[in-house]
Amino acid sequence: GTEIELESKNGQREHYTATSEDEARKIIEKAVRRGIKRIELRGASEQLIRDMQEIAKQIGLQYRTDGSL
């Protein structure tokens, strides 16, 4: 699965493990709508990382991946 670590603007951290790319995408989209400061992805697919970079650029988000592409 993909591990997703979120940090909201007030510094609250949340951790999710998505079993599918679809689920990961839903978690990320929800977080973005809620207003999130930072997202870290571990074990994400190349496609998901590309999507994440696109989203991050659009809304000026900090993100990090573990680089295991």
Rank of each mutant, 00 (worst) to 15 (best):
G1L: 15
G1T: 14
G1C: 14
T2Q: 03
I4L: 04
I4A: 00
I4T: 00
E5A: 10
E5N: 10
L6M: 08
L6C: 07
E7C: 11
E7W: 13
E7Q: 09
S8N: 14
S8C: 14
S8I: 12
K9S: 12
K9T: 13
K9A: 11
N10H: 08
N10G: 09
G11K: 02
G11F: 02
Q12L: 12
Q12M: 10
Q12G: 08
R13T: 10
E14P: 01
E14K: 07
E14H: 10
H15I: 13
H15L: 15
Y16F: 07
Y16S: 01
T17C: 13
T17D: 06
A18G: 04
T19W: 13
T19S: 11
T19Q: 13
S20W: 02
S20P: 02
D22Y: 08
D22F: 08
E23V: 05
E23W: 03
E23R: 02
A24E: 00
A24W: 02
A24C: 06
A24S: 02
A24K: 00
R25T: 02
R25S: 02
K26D: 13
I27M: 04
I27F: 11
I28L: 10
A31N: 02
A31I: 04
V32C: 09
V32A: 06
V32K: 02
V32H: 01
V32Y: 05
R33F: 07
R33Q: 14
R33K: 12
R33D: 07
R33C: 13
R33E: 11
R34Q: 12
R34G: 11
G35F: 03
G35W: 04
G35R: 04
I36E: 01
K37S: 07
K37Y: 09
I39C: 02
I39S: 00
I39Q: 00
I39K: 00
I39W: 03
E40I: 14
E40F: 13
L41R: 00
L41D: 00
L41G: 01
L41K: 00
G43A: 04
G43L: 03
A44H: 03
A44M: 03
S45D: 03
S45Q: 02
E46P: 11
Q47W: 06
L48S: 01
L48W: 02
I49C: 10
I49L: 11
R50H: 12
R50C: 07
R50Y: 04
R50A: 08
D51L: 13
D51V: 15
D51Y: 14
M52R: 00
M52C: 09
Q53K: 11
Q53L: 10
E54P: 02
E54F: 09
I55T: 03
I55E: 01
I55A: 03
A56N: 03
A56W: 05
A56Y: 05
K57H: 12
K57T: 14
Q58K: 11
I59R: 10
G60I: 07
G60F: 05
G60N: 08
L61W: 09
Q62L: 14
Y63Q: 06
Y63V: 15
T65Q: 14
T65C: 15
D66K: 03
D66H: 06
D66F: 03
G67C: 15
G67M: 06
G67E: 12
S68D: 08
S68H: 08
L69W: 15
L69C: 14
